[in-house]
C-alpha cells in the first residue's frame, strides 16, 4: 500500500513540477507571476482532446497540437498583456492584473468553444497493469513519469549548458546587465514564455491521461497547485519547482490514502504553510 501510494504521488507530483517550472521560468525573467498559466495550458490540452474526439486524430498529433496551441497562447499573452506594459515601465502589479485578465478571457473562450462540462479522454492508452513486485503500475503512470522526468532533465541541461539557457539565467538575474552584454532580452523573454507555456501544455496532456478527463476549470485549480509549488520550492528556483512538485503530489496522495479524500487540499496546503513558517524563502530559495 505504502509503495503503491508513493508511485501514485510521484506520478501526480511530476506533473505539478512541470506546471511549477513554467511559473518559475517566467518569474525569473519577468519578475511576475503569470496568473494565466493554468488556463493557457488547459486550453491547449482541450484543443488536443477535441482533435481526438471530433477529428479522430491520432494521440501523437493531438499531443503536439496541445503543446503548440499552449505555446501560441503564451506568445499572445506576451505581446498583448506583458510587453505593452513593460514598455511603459509600469509597476509589476499591473502586469499581474493583466495576466489575470488574460486568464479570464481564455477561461471564457474555453466555455464558449468546448463547453463547461467535463470531457472524457477516450484513450485506452496504458490501461494495462505492470507488476513490479511491491507495486503494480499502470502503463499510463509509467508514461507520465517518464515524459516528465525526461523533460526536466532536458530542461536542466538546456538552462545550465546552452548559450540560450545561460542568456535566460543572465536575464533572470539582471535584465539591464544582460542587455549591455549584447543579449536581446525581449527575445529571451519571448523564448521563455513560449517554453513555459509549452511545458504547461505537456503537463495538461499528462493530467488528462492520468484522470481520463479534462474540465476547463481545472486550469484554475492546477494553476494554484503550481503556484503553491513555486512558493514552496522558492520563487525562481527550477530545482525547487521540480522537487517540491513531487513533494506536493506525494503529500496529496498520502492524505487521501491514510486520511480522508476531502481533506486532500487542506493537508497539502497546510503542509506548505508549515514549511513556509520554518523556511519563509522556500525550500530551495535564497534569502533576499
Amino acid at each position: 500500500m505504502f509503495w503503491q501510494q508513493l508511485v501514485n504521488g510521484l506520478t501526480v507530483g511530476s506533473t505539478y513540477s512541470l506546471i511549477a517550472i513554467g511559473y518559475t521560468l517566467i518569474f525569473g525573467v519577468l519578475g511576475i507571476i503569470n496568473m494565466a498559466h493554468g488556463q493557457i495550458f488547459i486550453f491547449g490540452s482541450l484543443v488536443g482532446l477535441v482533435l481526438i474526439t471530433e477529428a479522430d486524430m491520432p494521440l501523437g498529433v493531438a499531443f503536439l497540437a496541445a503543446v503548440v496551441v499552449s505555446a501560441i497562447l503564451g506568445l499572445i499573452l506576451e505581446y498583448t498583456a506583458l510587453r505593452p506594459l513593460r514598455k511603459k515601465n509600469v509597476p509589476h502589479l499591473a502586469s499581474l492584473i493583466s495576466t489575470i485578465g488574460f486568464a479570464i478571457l481564455v477561461e471564457e473562450a474555453m466555455h464558449k468553444l468546448f463547453g463547461a462540462d467535463s470531457r472524457a479522454v477516450p484513450v485506452s492508452l496504458g490501461s494495462e497493469m505492470y507488476d513490479l513486485g511491491i507495486v503494480q503500475v499502470r502503463g499510463v503512470d509509467i508514461i507520465i513519469l517518464a515524459v516528465s522526468v525526461v523533460l526536466m532533465f532536458v530542461l536542466h541541461f538546456w538552462i545550465n549548458r546552452t548559450k540560450m539557457g545561460k542568456a535566460i539565467r543572465a536575464t533572470a538575474e539582471n535584465n539591464e546587465t544582460a542587455s549591455i552584454l549584447g543579449i536581446n532580452t525581449n527575445m529571451v523573454i519571448v523564448t521563455t514564455v513560449v517554453i513555459a507555456s509549452a511545458l504547461g501544455g505537456v503537463a495538461g496532456c499528462l493530467i488528462g491521461l492520468a484522470y481520463s478527463a479534462l474540465i476547463p476549470t481545472m486550469g484554475l485549480n492546477l494553476g494554484f497547485k503550481g503556484l503553491a509549488v513555486l512558493i514552496l520550492g522558492g520563487v525562481g528556483s527550477i530545482t525547487g519547482a521540480m522537487v517540491c512538485g513531487i513533494i506536493l503530489g506525494i503529500a496529496e496522495v498520502f492524505s487521501v490514502a491514510y486520511g480522508d479524500s476531502s481533506y486532500r487540499d487542506a493537508v497539502a496546503f497546510g503542509l506548505i504553510i508549515l514549511i513556509l513558517l520554518i523556511r519563509p524563502q522556500g525550500l530551495f530559495g535564497r534569502k533576499v
Binding site: 548559450k163 545561460k166 542568456a167 539565467r169 543572465a170 538575474e173 539582471n174 539591464e176 546587465t177 544582460a178 549591455i180 552584454l181 549584447g182 543579449i183
Partner: peptide
Amino acid sequence: VKAGLALVPEGRAILGQMTVQENLEMGAF
C-alpha cells in the same frame, strides 16, 4: 554591442549567480 560598444557599468554588475567563466561567455554573446 553589435555595433562595437561595450560598457563596464557602475558597480560592476557581475552576474553573481553565474560562474566567472559563464560571465565571460555572456560577454561574448
